[in-house]
């Protein structure tokens, strides 16, 4: 396999990918925090009150 057959990203493409990656990471982190606290807010302490 010759090197020139591989995909070589330009600087602009690398910057764009990094920007998208950071945004996806932040969005996922926000969703995790939101759903965690929303679960507590929605169910309250009763969420722990279940048969084991």
């Amino acid at each position: 396999m010759k090197d020139d057959e591989l995909v070589t990203m330009t600087e602009k493409q690398k910057r764009a990918r990094r920007s998208r990656s950071i945004a996806i990471g932040l969005a996922l982190a926000v969703l995790v925090v939101l759903f965690y606290f929303a679960t507590i807010a929605k169910f309250g302490p009763a969420i722990l009150d279940r048969p084991l």
């Binding site: 990203m9 920007s19 998208r20 950071i22």
Partner: peptide
């Protein structure tokens, strides 16, 4: 390869 940034989305 996409050149779209987060701002475009």
């Amino acid at each position: 390869i996409s050149e779209a940034t987060a701002a475009d989305y």
